[in-house]
Amino acid sequence: MTQRVTIASWNINSVRFRLEAVERFLREAAPDILCLQETKVEDGLFPHPLFEQLGYGHRAIKGQRMHHGVAILSRLPLADHGHHDWQDNGEARHIGVRLPGGVRLENVYVPAGGDVPDVDANPKFAQKLAFIERMTRWSEALTEPTLIVGDFNIAPLESDVWSHKQLLDVVSHTPIEVEALGRLQAAHGWVDLGRRFHPAPARLFTWWSYRAKDWAASDRGRRLDHMWASPAVAETAVAHHVYEPCRAWLKPSDHIPILTEFAW
């Protein structure tokens, strides 16, 4: 019997500050599973009651005070909770679980990398590339059917940014980052579900800076949020959606939710 499962991902930029937005999204889109990044809350202060009330009785969290933090909120049972320290410094940037049926779900928040795309001048940029390299080594050894989602903080394709030419030297779209992400994708044959259903050069932004006076009018977006699947898992995907109206909600995140529908 085929089961329809919907999995969403959203860099919420503080789950407690944007709790009303999260609740609205869960009520309107009703995903079976929501993966959050940048929750910015210690585990003991995570707002469990709301999610329990909304039916997301299964949760896996990895929090940190004021920074980073990831969570998986689910209507479906979750097993084998665990995390990888791809940052190699204890930061809360990953949480993983096993879903019913055996698929692994990995939720990741890749470091932004600072402002200067130079590994010698900017330690944050070097850490970002090292993080992706550790993910690549992990992907090479991966044997389970897996879905990895989250804020990758890289817009790989020319059509993934508002201006390829103007952003070539801007962290998130530099050639060195794009090449590193390409090696990561090749290491496991990951299928980019966003571009599978919305092939380039279709517009598919997921992030707009807070600095823009009118983000919608300027539309200087980037596709920083991704869902990648093992080939076998990708074959079960039936649709992929982006929820751009969420960027205009009260107290918005600078990211919007993305969601993939699967038939398992």
Score class of each variant (00 low, 15 high):
residue 210 Y to K: 09
residue 123 P to T: 15
residue 132 I to D: 03
residue 102 G to F: 06
residue 129 L to A: 04
residue 200 A to I: 09
residue 184 L to S: 02
residue 225 D to N: 08
residue 224 L to E: 08
residue 181 L to T: 00
residue 188 H to W: 05
residue 126 A to Y: 06
residue 140 E to L: 03
residue 137 R to M: 06
residue 169 D to S: 11
residue 152 F to G: 07
residue 151 D to H: 01
residue 142 L to N: 09
residue 178 V to R: 14
residue 177 E to L: 15
residue 170 V to Y: 13
residue 172 S to W: 12
residue 157 L to F: 15
residue 135 M to A: 07
residue 233 V to L: 11
residue 219 D to Y: 14
residue 162 W to E: 00
residue 117 P to Q: 01
residue 114 G to T: 06
residue 101 G to A: 03
residue 128 K to H: 14
residue 148 I to N: 06
residue 122 N to G: 07
residue 167 L to P: 04
residue 209 S to F: 14
residue 115 D to I: 14
residue 115 D to Q: 13
residue 201 P to S: 09
residue 196 R to V: 15
residue 180 A to I: 12
residue 142 L to T: 11
residue 192 D to M: 04
residue 152 F to A: 04
residue 150 G to D: 00
residue 186 A to Q: 09
residue 190 W to T: 10
residue 215 W to D: 04
residue 155 A to R: 02
residue 212 A to H: 14
residue 207 W to K: 13
residue 211 R to A: 13
residue 189 G to M: 05
residue 158 E to G: 03
residue 198 H to I: 14
residue 128 K to P: 08
residue 210 Y to I: 07
residue 105 L to Y: 02
residue 109 Y to P: 00
residue 183 R to F: 11
residue 158 E to M: 07
residue 170 V to E: 14
residue 179 E to N: 12
residue 160 D to E: 01
residue 112 A to Q: 05
residue 117 P to A: 01
residue 216 A to I: 11
residue 154 I to Y: 03
residue 134 R to L: 04
residue 159 S to M: 07
residue 144 E to A: 02
residue 208 W to S: 09
residue 104 R to Q: 08
residue 131 F to M: 00
residue 127 Q to T: 03
residue 130 A to P: 03
residue 227 M to P: 11
residue 224 L to K: 06
residue 143 T to V: 11
residue 101 G to C: 07
residue 211 R to M: 12
residue 216 A to Y: 08
residue 172 S to M: 13
residue 202 A to W: 06
residue 104 R to N: 05
residue 206 T to V: 10
residue 145 P to A: 12
residue 139 S to E: 04
residue 146 T to V: 07
residue 173 H to A: 06
residue 100 P to S: 08
residue 200 A to G: 08
residue 219 D to H: 14
residue 105 L to V: 01
residue 233 V to A: 13
residue 194 G to N: 12
residue 163 S to N: 02
residue 111 P to N: 03
residue 221 G to W: 15
residue 175 P to K: 12
residue 110 V to P: 05
residue 167 L to R: 09
residue 231 P to K: 12
residue 160 D to G: 07
residue 231 P to A: 13
residue 172 S to E: 08
residue 216 A to T: 05
residue 221 G to N: 04
residue 128 K to Q: 13
residue 231 P to F: 15
residue 191 V to M: 11
residue 115 D to M: 15
residue 190 W to P: 12
residue 133 E to S: 09
residue 141 A to Q: 12
residue 142 L to E: 12
residue 109 Y to S: 02
residue 151 D to L: 02
residue 211 R to K: 14
residue 197 F to S: 09
residue 151 D to G: 00
residue 213 K to V: 11
residue 147 L to P: 03
residue 203 R to A: 11
residue 214 D to T: 08
residue 126 A to M: 02
residue 198 H to K: 13
residue 106 E to N: 05
residue 144 E to M: 01
residue 195 R to A: 05
residue 195 R to Y: 04
residue 179 E to Q: 15
residue 228 W to E: 10
residue 144 E to V: 01
residue 193 L to Y: 07
residue 127 Q to I: 03
residue 188 H to M: 08
residue 179 E to W: 14
